[in-house]
């Protein structure tokens, strides 16, 4: 069953065309890796799906669990079961990480908070202002921790591995894999290393506001490594010409 269906999505922000008729389907229980060069629109796509106010599609549809959510406000999408782990989450003074977990799920117990914090080595951070003076890796683990509290049916990870040391990529990758083993989601990455731990069946390449290719993540990543994104574009064009 489809959990997410994006139909011909066009998005313009501050006069710039960022998404150009994008189509994508994610099935229930599916893990999709989203690849693409800087500025190709990967984060943009996640913000649009999440419902950021400045990312209102010009046309097209976002269908989530059979419901058209294209014009639904963000917190309503959260209620429906969407979640987003930010690439660069902001620090908020006076709001502790433990309090953020309560925002994610009101009735989260102290025991569960402790359990999931332990999974991510974040016990010492619960009492700190969220993301304030967190290192890159700590901020990413804090994001994942909030997702574990929130348990969204469909979760989007925006570069969960950028700026994270190898050991922590392994920790984060394994926990994302465990979470996604019974949830659906999209993972944006630039590094292949995290894909050693996240077993996704499919990767899509986003290029210039559109998905131009999809296939086995490791194969596609290898292609990009060898030939570069430019070649992908040409390959795709060739396919279209044929």
């Amino acid at each position: 069953m489809e959990i997410l269906k994006i139909e011909n999505l066009w998005l313009e922000v501050e006069g710039k065309q960022l998404l150009k008729g994008l189509n994508l389907v994610v099935h229930e229980g599916e893990k999709t890796v989203l690849l693409g060069p800087n500025g190709s629109g990967k984060s943009t796509l996640l913000y649009t799906l999440m419902g950021f106010p400045n990312y209102k599609p010009k046309s097209g549809k976002i269908i989530f669990k059979g419901q058209d959510i294209t014009n639904l406000p963000m917190h309503e999408r959260v209620k429906l079961g969407m979640g987003l782990a930010f690439q660069n989450p902001p620090a908020i003074r006076g709001i502790k990480l433990s309090e953020m977990l309560q925002v994610c799920r009101k009735d989260i117990s102290v025991e569960e908070t402790a359990t999931i914090a332990k999974l991510l080595n974040m016990e010492g951070f619960l009492d700190r202002d969220v993301n304030l003076n967190f290192s890159g890796g700590e901020a990413k683990r804090a994001e994942l921790l909030q997702i574990l509290a929130q348990k969204p049916e469909f979760v989007m990870f925006d570069e969960p591995d950028s700026g994270v040391d190898i050991e922590n990529v392994e920790l984060i990758g394994k926990q994302i894999e465990a979470f996604l083993s019974n949830h659906s989601g999209i993972v944006i990455t630039h590094q292949g290393y995290i894909l050693n731990f996240i077993k996704a069946a499919r990767a899509c390449i986003l290029y210039d506001g559109n998905i131009i290719c999809s296939g086995n993540p490791l194969d596609i990543l290898e292609d990009i490594r060898v030939r570069g994104y430019e070649q992908c574009v040409k390959c795709n064009l060739r396919k279209r010409d044929e």
């Binding site: 963000m74 917190h75 959260v78 908020i92 006076g94 709001i95 925002v103 202002d129």
Partner: peptide, 19 residues
Amino acid sequence: YLMSRGLSEEEATSAIIRG
């Protein structure tokens, strides 16, 4: 950020002021 965790804009604003 707070809205993406499920708060409305108003709730998010007051949580930030409280913090």
